[in-house]
């Protein structure tokens, strides 16, 4: 437990300090939302109907940022050896890293999204679904992303590969997340979509932490 907390706190500190890029994801997210009207035109009806997809595509892309820093630096500077030799099971190492990534990336997006969504003319009564869908879905994105980061760690120019691996696997989150916001905008019940989103995150948590731990265990030869 002590090792887990130490790792979690260290990863958070690392991403908050210079060169850590904790706010990059959130900044990127806001930027995409702000760019959309410039590309699509300021028509409120159009932006409103495009909003669910835009918000979730922005979230998908924004969570990619920072993933390269989740595993790679520890692999390069030898800290991963230390973690592999420690008493902390690698599944928990992964969990600490996912949590640190989510707290500095996904959670910030969850907080910012309801604030910037009105720029896309999302109704005030739909904002809670925006927040809820991101709150339920972004942990899944961090889990799958960390598994992708573990599998592609040590690869030259791993960033593009990481996106190529992670984005298709995160498609269910995009569909259910945008679906939930869509549902509430059309006056129907978003709960089914939100539950499916939660299910996706839970499955992602199990599969991705096992996969990432296996990848860290087998990462060298």
């Amino acid at each position: 437990m002590r090792a887990f907390t130490a790792l979690l706190l260290r990863d958070i500190v690392l991403s908050l300090r210079s060169g850590g890029g904790a706010w990059l994801g959130a900044g990127f997210f806001v930027l995409i939302i702000a760019l959309a009207p410039l590309g699509l035109g300021p028509e409120p009806a159009l932006l409103k109907s495009a909003a669910p997809g835009l918000i979730w595509i922005a979230a998908l892309l924004a969570t990619l940022l920072g993933l390269e820093r989740v595993i790679e630096p520890d692999l390069q500077d030898g800290t991963l050896d230390l973690l592999r030799m420690s008493a902390l099971p690698l599944e928990f190492v992964v969990l600490a890293k996912v949590l640190a990534h989510w707290l500095t990336n996904g959670l910030v997006i969850c907080v910012l999204a309801p604030l910037v969504s009105p720029m896309l003319f999302v109704d005030a009564k739909a904002l809670w679904v925006v927040a809820a869908s991101l709150l339920l879905g972004t942990p899944g994105l961090s889990f799958i992303g960390t598994a992708g980061a573990a599998v592609s760690a040590g690869v030259r120019r791993g960033g593009v590969l990481l996106a190529l691996i992670v984005l298709p696997l995160n498609i269910p989150a995009l569909i259910f997340g945008a679906g939930a916001i869509n549902a509430v905008q059309h006056g129907s019940d978003p709960r089914q979509a939100l539950l499916l989103l939660a299910a996706f995150s839970l499955i992602a948590a199990v599969v991705a932490s096992l996969a990432a731990a296996a990848a860290l265990r087998l990462n060298e030869d």
């Binding site: 599998v151 592609s152 696997l169 599969v207 991705a208 996969a211 990848a215 087998l218």
Partner: peptide
């Protein structure tokens, strides 16, 4: 690594 990705 490919094994793990394939199974995921």
């Amino acid at each position: 690594m490919a094994r793990i990705l394939c199974l995921v």
